[in-house]
Design a protein around this nucleic acid. Structure first.
Lengths: 154, 154
DNA sequence: TTCAATTGAATTGCATACAATTAAATTGCG
DNA sequence: CGCAATTTAATTGTATGCAATTCAATTGAA
């Protein structure tokens, strides 16, 4: 690539992904508003609907979020009545996140969400799946980097 | 897709893109720190290196950011000495953003950035290009939606 | 057992993001 | 011209995100 081309905005994969991520979040906004959830709260609920009564640490690993983001977000979900935050009796350092009945009930109303957003996005499901596979591959390529670098022999 | 599968985190294209975007930003962080830029400031400088003396509105359209984000960010870049913020004499509503000499000089030091980040990401350039093309397509599919919906006949 | 090292969550500080509103400047219609 | 509608930034309020630090609980080695 030409020296100058390398710094053009339209040649930055990072920017394409960054901009896309933000637009997608905006697409979810009106749909999630009906459920009383923000986008980050929504993916947190998705994780919990699959498996709850988990520590903040485990939740953070599944969502790629740290306690700085999750602590206030989970307090908010607790205030809204969707989760309970309970200290683990056998290890008081850990905070277990459990769905409430209302939290579990919310799942019923969430089943429509993906389809509603799909309809807004004018893209066939097969294309979206391709994108997902590529993103997952890219994620695998970059996410463990830090950990690997640390264990590199010197 | 099975009813329950549709809400699984690993099946959400939105989550794959969202998580990827965040990890990529983290990859840039240490590299950009040497230049004294955050990620958002960096893409703003990329846009300005291509074309400066533009209004906040035009910059926002190219970066998909609004004045709520750009106003404080541009003030920061001004404080750092990389840009000047000048009211357009012929239309006082507009604020023109111009690179300073220091801002233009910074470009020289930025040429290394993409390669440095590539090296951290263990992915061939051809794969990254494929990702970029797909993201750009997806962006085209979803971004104009709102505008189109407004002009739909009733 | 004892205490230093580690672990997990919370906190702090800073930088986004964006919806909604506000305020100033400009435009365009009558 | 005169003023309502529009346009552009800035502001306000809320919600992330994350690096770095702190604090309490637990673990593990001597």
């Amino acid at each position: 690539m030409e020296r100058d081309e390398s710094l053009k905005l339209e040649n930055q994969t990072c920017f394409a992904i960054y901009a896309c991520a933000k637009e997608i979040t905006k697409l979810y906004h009106p749909v999630l508003k009906e459920l009383g959830l923000t986008y980050t709260q929504y993916i947190t609920m998705l994780a919990l609907w699959e498996r709850d009564r988990v520590s903040v640490k485990e939740l953070g690993e599944r969502l790629y979020l740290d306690s700085g983001t999750l602590t206030p977000l989970l307090k908010k979900l607790e205030t809204q009545g969707f989760v309970s935050r309970i200290r683990d009796r056998s290890d008081e350092r850990q905070l277990l996140i459990e769905l409430t009945d209302a939290g579990r009930a919310l799942k019923e109303r969430a089943y429509d969400v993906p389809e509603k957003v799909f309809c807004q996005a004018g893209m066939p499901a097969s294309e979206l799946m391709k994108v997902r596979v590529q993103m997952t591959e890219l994620m695998r390529a970059i996410h463990p980097v830090a950990a690997v670098a640390e264990t590199t022999p010197d």
